[in-house]
Design a protein around this nucleic acid. Structure first.
Lengths: 201, 201
DNA sequence: GTCTATATGACGATAGAC
DNA sequence: GTCTATCGTCATATAGAC
């Protein structure tokens, strides 16, 4: 099930300078707390410890910062997607993807809500072809072609991804440590998938 | 299972003038498109067809608009919660709540993401006691006390609410009409709950 | 209840010194 | 690569006429 795409790793290969990475880290933290529109370049500059002009030297516009941050996050997801796409059997590929996505969602839960729900992030992801293409690869693995009804397959995939992305930010689970949340989530989503346990692990 | 609260309907009883309601409707639409921080009072005024000053006559600050809009949405949820709280049996109460919440989430899916994820909405809901109290009533019905493990109960409730709120805004289901999405979602979440079908319908 | 006009400050973004 | 200083625009919010 290898994807017949021009380049299967469009995001992981992008390189950033150290100064750019400092800016992106601060931006991601602030986006997670206040959303993209609620985060000003002054706030980012203050957190990095430089002036606004220094931030503008690293990125020409605020939008470029958003794109860089989004691409950086998708680069992490990309490894999980490639691992899933390498699996020959669809149900097993789906299980691999879910396990790794849950891993990521739990450890990076502070930023999950912004990355999946922020209006500016959604707009940017929709306007740039590499992002759109990546999302369709993700959903291709997630959609269950065994379902006779396409509607049920679509809603199931939507429920599954929403359950992961949304549950990790719920106040009910903020006090749970990563490992507990991770294990419980995998257990619950496997039950949702109605998949048998893997033979060796 | 009647809640022993001072007033069980803190939101539905609030009254607004017609002019305030026009402002709140416009604000909700714009919040849904651009988020709260991405929506200016000028945009709201333009959509209503008045000037900024006229909007400021209805609400002293932007924050007051956010509070009014949030309270208005919780008022709709309040009816669903009261119906659930009136049920003597917990599992049945949970099923009633889920069915009605899914109804609301589907028909109002344009605004669900903002209302559950926008950083400003979340901050406002956390800062005001009536909102906090309402949310704890919601979770009280949603939490499954039959679960031996509190962790599993918490994560299950988080997964369930996230699945509903998050799935209705997924691009995979935007083309589905309300009735189809509603029916499919109820079917899938009932399966998740592992509840038996109700005796009479 | 809505208007014009304005105060005050923050926003994204740029020029040019170092 | 970072700084100071600044531009033009837009933000929230207010005063006072009608």
């Amino acid at each position: 099930m290898l994807a017949d795409t021009p380049s299967p790793r469009p995001f992981s290969t992008i390189r950033w300078t150290a100064a750019q990475q400092r800016t992106m880290t601060a931006a991601l933290d602030l986006f997670g707390m206040h959303g993209v529109s609620g985060t000003s370049l002054q706030m980012i500059a203050d957190m990095v410890g430089v002036t606004k002009a220094a931030v503008y030297y690293q990125f020409k516009t605020k939008e470029e910062i958003v794109i860089a941050v989004a691409a950086n996050e998708l680069a992490i997801l990309e490894d999980a997607l490639l691992a899933a796409e390498a699996e020959p059997e669809r149900p097993h590929a789906r299980r691999v993807l879910l396990t790794r996505v849950i891993d990521l969602a739990v450890t990076r839960r502070r930023w999950v809500s912004t990355l999946t729900n922020d209006p500016v992030i959604i707009r940017v992801l929709g306007e740039h072809e590499p992002f759109r293409h990546f999302m369709s690869r993700l959903y291709a693995v997630l959609l269950d072609e065994r379902e006779a009804d396409d509607t049920v397959a679509r809603v199931s995939a939507a429920v599954l991804s929403a359950a992961i992305a949304g549950s990790v930010v719920n106040p009910l689970v903020t006090e749970l440590d990563d490992e507990t949340l991770r294990t419980t989530l995998i257990q619950l989503t496997q039950r949702m998938l109605d998949l048998p346990d893997p033979p060796n692990g």
